[in-house]
């Protein structure tokens, strides 16, 4: 097995452990778009955990940066409007679609939710189609 596959598997196992901790202690799904969206419309008593989760995500990023700065390589080198458009689509789409890669793709599929399986197949298929098209039009190199 190539080392990249092993790393991907190991990282995936860590993510599986993380979402299991969230379920076991807090009884919650680790859906990152939903957690962020909830933090943007603060409800008393339901905000601190969301904010600290996001702080943890960023602190983990700093830890990774200290261990191996290479984890943040791979800039697409695309024009900046594409980053803005991508962010808008991801923000709007994940809330309209009730979840992203973590909530639907990991947590939903793990509890055998057909709804999440459908969402995951749709966003992966859309991503595959979009990359093919954007490459065709020279928007992605």
């Amino acid at each position: 097995m190539p080392v990249e596959w092993v790393n991907a598997l190991l990282g995936g196992v860590l993510i599986g452990i993380a979402v299991s901790m969230m379920l076991m202690f807090n009884g919650r799904v680790t859906g990152i778009s939903g957690i962020l969206n909830g933090a943007l419309s603060p409800v008393k008593g339901d905000t601190l955990w969301r904010v600290l989760f996001i702080v943890g995500l960023v602190l983990g990023g700093f830890a990774m940066r200290a261990l191996s700065p290479d984890v943040f390589k791979g800039d697409l080198g695309t024009e900046s409007w594409t980053t803005i458009a991508a962010g808008l689509l991801v923000g709007f789409g994940t809330i309209l679609g009730s979840g992203c890669t973590s909530g639907h793709g990991v947590c939903g599929i793990s509890r055998m939710s057909v709804r999440s399986l459908v969402a995951t197949m749709v966003f992966i298929a859309a991503g595959v189609g979009a990359v093919a098209l954007f490459r065709q039009f020279g928007i992605l190199n």
Binding site: V90, F92, G93, G97, S98, S102, V122, G129, F134
Partner: peptide, 21 residues
Amino acid sequence: ALVAGSLLFGVGWGLGGFCPG
């Protein structure tokens, strides 16, 4: 909404190479 939202998300994911986490 589930299908349309996931579709938009997928396009943005492909364009930017980032999902939220």
